[in-house]
């Protein structure tokens, strides 16, 4: 089911959280709402499911205007951050609750609960209480409960935030698998860029109640519209270097780089964004500096290099450690992959 937010706005009393937001989620797509804490992700999500009343604009499911339709009639499944399982009901009763409300027959409920439990692989746990499950299992139950009445839309509010690193990895692909198997349209709220990039078809980056950019993950990684977006995607994060552009030459007190594809600007202050993988020993445009930090992450090693004017570049390289802290290095930048932003942060 296609979801369309038209000039959507939401304020709490005098506080304007979201103004004039437009967003389209395609049928069967999984879209990530990615942004820093407090930017209005949950607010948007709760407006879509009807928990929050919309203060401006429209929400459409397909061609149906649901702006003023109560939650109960929207047919939206929601997975809350803390799962919100019903503690006094067994797992089977939890999953079957939406059907019970619809007064489906006990046999029918039982059949569907088992089917759902198999889908999320918790078939053996149906008689337990939520308190007797691990975090990952609770999360599966929440997912099953959200999916059992075949909702038109699935909303996930930071569903993985409470899980440990390994489970998070597992549930990431698990949720994606289930979403693809059911073909349901889904919105995933997260502030974890890895989650957004690995699970979703498209990412919408939000900042202060505005959508800054919507694109497929790799497209967004390669072509961010602003330094904010570039800084949000990628781990370890991109490094920014301030300086001035003259013709196609970038200069700051620490470095001088020839930019082949640079927009022609004379003497304007600009900001270069250089991702760690584009700052490597073998690359052509050499800059030198002092290694200030080395972090071995097992398969890869991360270096911070302080340029002569104090700005920091990051480099991520293979396993072998090539330089220690305090050592001077002269590594290269690949000029084709440099991102250039103007002083306000907009991409040039």
């Amino acid at each position: 089911m296609r979801i369309l937010l038209k000039n959507f706005g939401k304020s709490f009393g005098a506080v304007n959280v979201i103004e004039n937001l437009n967003l389209e989620i395609h049928d069967g797509e999984m879209l990530a709402l990615l942004g820093p804490s407090g930017c209005g992700k949950s607010t948007t999500l709760f407006a879509v499911c009807g928990i929050h009343k919309v203060t401006a604009g429209q929400i459409l499911f397909g061609d149906r205007d649901v702006t003023h339709v109560p939650s109960q009639q929207r047919n939206v499944g929601v997975v809350f951050q803390n799962y919100a399982l019903y503690p006094h009901l067994s797992i089977a009763e939890n999953i079957g609750f939406p059907l019970k409300i619809r007064k489906e027959s006990a046999a029918e409920i039982k059949r569907k609960v088992h089917e759902m439990a198999d889908l999320v692989q918790i078939g053996a746990l149906l008689d337990r209480r939520p308190a007797e499950l691990s975090g990952g299992q609770q999360q599966r139950v929440a997912l099953a409960r959200a999916l059992i009445r075949r909702p038109d839309v699935l909303l996930l509010d930071e569903p993985l935030a409470n899980l440990d690193a390994k489970l998070r990895l597992e549930m990431r692909s698990e949720i994606r698998r289930i979403q693809q198997e059911t073909g349901i349209t889904a919105i995933l709220v997260t502030h974890d860029q890895v989650e957004a990039m690995s699970m979703c078809d498209r990412i919408a980056i939000m900042k202060q109640g505005q959508i800054v950019q919507i694109a497929a993950p790799m497209e967004m990684y390669d072509n961010p519209v602003s330094d904010f977006v570039a800084g949000f995607l990628g781990n370890p994060p991109i490094a920014f270097v301030d300086g001035a552009l003259t013709g196609s030459v970038f200069e700051s007190s620490g470095i001088r780089i020839e930019l082949p594809s640079a927009a022609q600007r004379n003497g304007g202050p600009v900001k270069l964004g250089i991702r760690p993988e584009n700052f490597q020993p073998e690359f052509p445009q050499k800059v030198s500096g002092e290694v200030t930090f080395v972090e071995s992450q097992g398969r890869e090693t991360l270096y911070d290099v302080r340029l002569d004017d104090g700005q920091i570049l990051r480099s991520i390289q293979g396993h072998a450690v090539r330089a220690g802290v305090g050592e001077r290095v002269s590594w290269g930048i690949s000029p084709d992959n440099i991102l250039i932003f103007d002083e306000k942060g907009a991409r040039l």
């Binding site: 499911c49 928990i51 939650s71 939206v76 919100a84 609750f97 939406p98 409960r145 009445r149």
Partner: peptide, 10 residues
Amino acid sequence: EIEMAGIQDG
């Protein structure tokens, strides 16, 4: 959230 979940469940 328990109440909101209930409302969402119809």
